[in-house]
């Protein structure tokens, strides 16, 4: 029970993720087959759908935008500030910060990760591991979107009696950028809303909010 309580946030989001991705697969399969029937083409099985290009591109295009959002949020908040926002560091803390504040090298304590006491590439990797992993997942998801998207796009072009296009043409096509940018704009708006609204609004008990009684001008304080 204690383990469940201590990991309840991750477990809840894992369950929500699995439920949503499963629901997307079922709804997407029915939607795909409705379109197949409208074009006088055969229905496909659920297994064929979840291994198809249309499903891969629908999943990947959302993944890449989410990971881009968090990658940018992680990296930009190292240097950029927003006075009054709990999502920002304090006004004098922009940058990579001191070794002491980051608890690395001789400032590491007995509970610090061992690489926090290391030097060179190991310390650099640990110091940037979150950004590296989130950025890598973004790039791979975007690549997956481009590969799956090309298959789905070319399949539609053949249905319309048009020539298929090579990958280079697809990733410079309006279709690819429309798919990417329509996801990116919503992610950027969500981050902007979070950064700005949290200056003036509160959610009691949430670490994403300032304490209810904290001043609008106080920055980098989480409740």
């Amino acid at each position: 029970m204690r383990w469940l309580k201590e990991n309840s946030l991750s477990l809840t989001f894992l369950i929500l993720f699995l439920a949503c991705v499963g629901g997307q697969a079922v709804a997407g399969w029915h939607d795909f087959n409705d379109q197949q029937l409208a074009q006088h083409l055969d229905r496909i099985s659920f297994l064929d759908y979840v291994t198809s290009a249309p499903y891969a591109v629908d999943v990947a295009e959302n993944w890449q935008s989410e990971y881009l959002q968090f990658f940018l949020f992680i990296m930009l908040t190292v240097w950029l500030l927003q006075k009054g926002s709990p999502e920002s560091k304090e006004m004098d803390a922009a940058g990579a910060e001191s070794d002491e504040r980051q608890q690395i090298g001789r400032y590491a304590d007995e509970n610090s990760p061992s690489w926090a006491r290391a030097t060179g590439i190991r310390l650099w990797l640990l110091s940037n591991s979150l950004g590296i992993v989130m950025g890598t997942i973004f790039v791979l998801s975007w690549l997956a979107q481009s590969v799956g998207g090309q298959v789905a796009y070319n399949s539609e072009r053949l249905v319309d009696l048009l020539d298929p296009v090579p990958w280079g043409s697809y990733v410079t096509s309006a279709e690819f950028w429309n798919r990417s940018l329509q996801n990116w704009q919503s992610e950027m708006l969500a981050v902007l809303s979070m950064v700005v609204l949290s200056i003036y609004l509160r959610q009691r008990g949430s670490p994403e909010s300032k304490p209810v009684g904290a001043a609008h001008s106080s920055t980098g304080v989480e409740g």
Binding site: T51, S52, A56, W63, L140, V151
Partner: peptide, 12 residues
């Protein structure tokens, strides 16, 4: 996983 699926659907 998604990349693997995408590579799969490209029809290797």
């Amino acid at each position: 996983m998604v990349l693997a699926s995408a590579l799969l659907v490209t029809g290797c």
